[in-house]
Amino acid sequence: MRQNIVAGNWKMNLTLQDGLALVSEITNMVADEVTGSQVQVVICPPFPFLYSVGKQLPEGSNFHLGAQNCSDKESGAYTGEVSGKMLQSVGAEYVILGHSERRQYFREDDFLLSQKLKAALAAGLKPIFCIGESLETREAEETFDFISKQLKDGLFHLSNEEFAQVVIAYEPIWAIGTGKTATSAQAQEVHAFIREQIARAYDAEAADNTTILYGGSANAQNARELFSQPDVDGGLIGGASLKSRDFTEIIKSF
């Protein structure tokens, strides 16, 4: 059975003190419900907060630590970069790769992301690999061709064993930070297509076991409907993950 996941991407927000207070609120609200449930909660703070936030997550619970990015290099003279091995050493289990903001603002392409995937997997991290189309692409009715190419170029070079460690996040770019959200039917349609592409590239078992998250202005009001779709296994949450009550309501949506 594939894993249900709610991941909170804090992006470049909060101070360490604010972040620790937020984690304390979230864990106090839902720690008992999450422990022993089928839902994993992944908290993805900025790099400087990782160790401190990780130490505050309840041991033995379904709370996990994730990073927002990592280098494609293992080590060396790469000032300002952070390797997968470094992330693993401070307790990170997951890492977000290919977020639309990284692709857009930092010009990360599918080749670079394929190298980052390899590096993250070699360090023992579980990648949350983001894909998704722009409004222009959707309006041109090229969504499926675009996503198929992102999957092929970014992910499908992995072996079966490597691919089994990957979580996919579908994030329609037109719905990130805009307040717009794909309808549950739109999300389900694309998630089902992604699963179909996985089955073709690997096999039906791999497709059925892959967790596919929705990311794109998911919030406390629409999470339950989105998560009720058969191919939507959770969410990669942005702005709502910075509000303890909203984030815990999303977690409870399962």
Rank of each mutant, 00 (worst) to 15 (best):
Y51L: 12
C130W: 01
S100E: 08
H191Y: 06
M29E: 14
Y105E: 12
T178F: 11
A199C: 13
L97N: 00
V42N: 05
S217T: 07
N9G: 04
D203G: 00
A175M: 12
M1H: 14
N4C: 10
T181S: 15
E142Y: 06
T178K: 04
G76H: 11
I26G: 00
K118N: 14
A185R: 15
S75A: 14
Q115S: 14
G234Q: 06
A240L: 14
S114Q: 13
W174P: 10
D145K: 00
I251C: 00
A92P: 04
S241N: 08
P45S: 01
W174L: 10
L158W: 02
I168N: 01
S37W: 03
A123E: 02
V30E: 10
Q115G: 06
K55M: 14
P172M: 00
V166N: 01
N4A: 08
T15L: 04
S217A: 10
I168M: 05
G91I: 02
N160Q: 13
G84W: 02
T143D: 07
T181M: 12
S71E: 04
S61Y: 03
E81K: 07
Y170F: 08
F47I: 04
G76A: 10
N219P: 02
Q88T: 11
A120T: 03
A164C: 09
A77C: 10
